[in-house]
Write a protein that binds this DNA or RNA. Structure first.
Ligand code: MN
Ligand code: MN
Ligand code: ZN
Ligand code: ZN
Lengths: 137, 137
DNA sequence: TTATTAAAGGATAATTATTATCCTTTAAGT
DNA sequence: ACTTAAAGGATAATAATTATCCTTTAATAA
């Protein structure tokens, strides 16, 4: 549960001016975790009714460049964005579309993959799909 | 190494008319493995110079619906498409952008993920990133 | 074979997504 | 408070994708 001041300082660390609109975007991502362009535009519009959708795009673009945020590509869905935090994987519920972070032990998998393929591996993007506990009740 | 007749019969199995253009698309995917829209349009245009890009899109759309092909989403790249084959994962070389299929043992990972998250898991989309043996020489 | 017909192709319009431009405003640093 | 580069808003431009309309053709069956 970060506060606005924390988020502001974080923006400055990434050489991004902490404007109210931008703070709102970062705050939305902090609160909701993963959001696509439309969701972000809708939510930020509540607080800043005159914000241009171009501002949303411009922010996503520069925030990605500075790696303040990251893009997560999910099969059959629009890309979502999240604050850049520690490496992790994702699970998506095919019923309610909820996206959840999960910390997986990937060393073994990477070692094995590296051995099979002779690639020198560094990153992994893992998206698992299933039904969340709420939806399976 | 499939031949055209095999591909044709496969199209029919998916209730897709085996037109020359469509056969060419399927054949390209069979030969090249993973292709994005532009690559597909470029290559098919060689053989059918008058083909419309809309035809490429229409085919991708319906082939996805029928699950004759699948979309693979790679971080920081355009989506690529591939023939629907046995479940597998992908490795991408960050130097030459080559995409390679890899058969990974995911049972252990899925079991662990399921245990941590309480999700009932079924599918997994795994994209690993690194440097291929050719590029690391 | 030939006839029938739904599906598919081509051209292009329409829509949607994303980026660029221009001018005004403002946050950050002095 | 002053300066200035960065960012916002409006909107144009471009790129990506889908829809439409009309013609052609592959599949099926008589
Ligand atoms: Mn996440
Ligand atoms: Mn593949
Ligand atoms: Zn759910
Ligand atoms: Zn390589």
């Amino acid at each position: 549960m970060k506060n606005i001041l924390e988020i502001k300082n974080n923006l400055l660390k990434y050489n991004l001016k902490a404007t109210p609109q931008r703070l709102c975007i970062a705050n939305c991502l902090d609160i909701h975790g993963h959001m696509n362009v439309d969701e972000l535009y809708f939510l930020v519009s509540q607080e800043f009714p005159t914000i241009s959708v171009a501002t949303i795009y411009k922010n996503i673009k520069i925030m990605l460049e500075r790696v303040f945020i990251k893009e997560v590509k999910i099969p059959k869905q629009k890309s979502v964005y999240e604050l850049n935090k520690a490496q992790h994987s994702h699970i998506v519920c095919s019923k309610c579309n909820k996206i959840v972070d999960i910390q997986l032990q990937t060393e073994e998998l990477l070692r094995s993959a590296s051995q099979i393929s002779n690639f020198t591996l560094n990153e992994s993007a893992i998206v698992l799909n299933g039904v969340c506990p709420e939806c399976s009740k």
